[in-house]
Amino acid sequence: MDPSTEIVRLVVNGQSREVGVPTHFTLLEALRYVLGLTGTKQGCDKGDCGACTVIVDGEPVLACLTPVWEAEGREVTTVEGLAGPEGIHALQDCFDLHGAAQCGFCTPGILCSAAALLAGNPSPTREEIREAIAGNLCRCTGYAKIYDAVEAAALRTGGPQG
């Protein structure tokens, strides 16, 4: 083992996992290359695209710019963790029904940004949806169908609509 390798304890999608990683690893590298959770995408790797967005303690963050040690002891949710025992997340179903994914590379990150939004704000306005995914680039859809899908998911899961 590399002398700089350390054991980091992560809680990913509700499961405790121990990963042996060099200290300079990012959370994204630990998720994809150690834990095999390749749903989280490595896009620009510089904070310019949002493809690596995961949810840490309820907040969307960029896994490519999060050092792995900073995720220790915090709840990490990736796109693989959005589905529950009853099946896929309403957002995932609505993205399918509304054609909100084309090439799909940005989709895991957008799902995470949108899931974090709905968890804190079950009935967002379209403007709030736009702002919530302003940090996720999509080069295919033009976003309109993504907004539609998030609105539909909110209607399905949210409280009374304002």
């Binding site: 904070g47 949002g50 967005t53 969307p60 963050v61 960029l62 710019l65 940004s113 940090g135």
Partner: peptide, 9 residues
């Protein structure tokens, strides 16, 4: 500043 993710971090 930037985006929601970047403001969180």
């Amino acid at each position: 500043v930037a985006t929601p993710q970047i403001r969180n971090q």
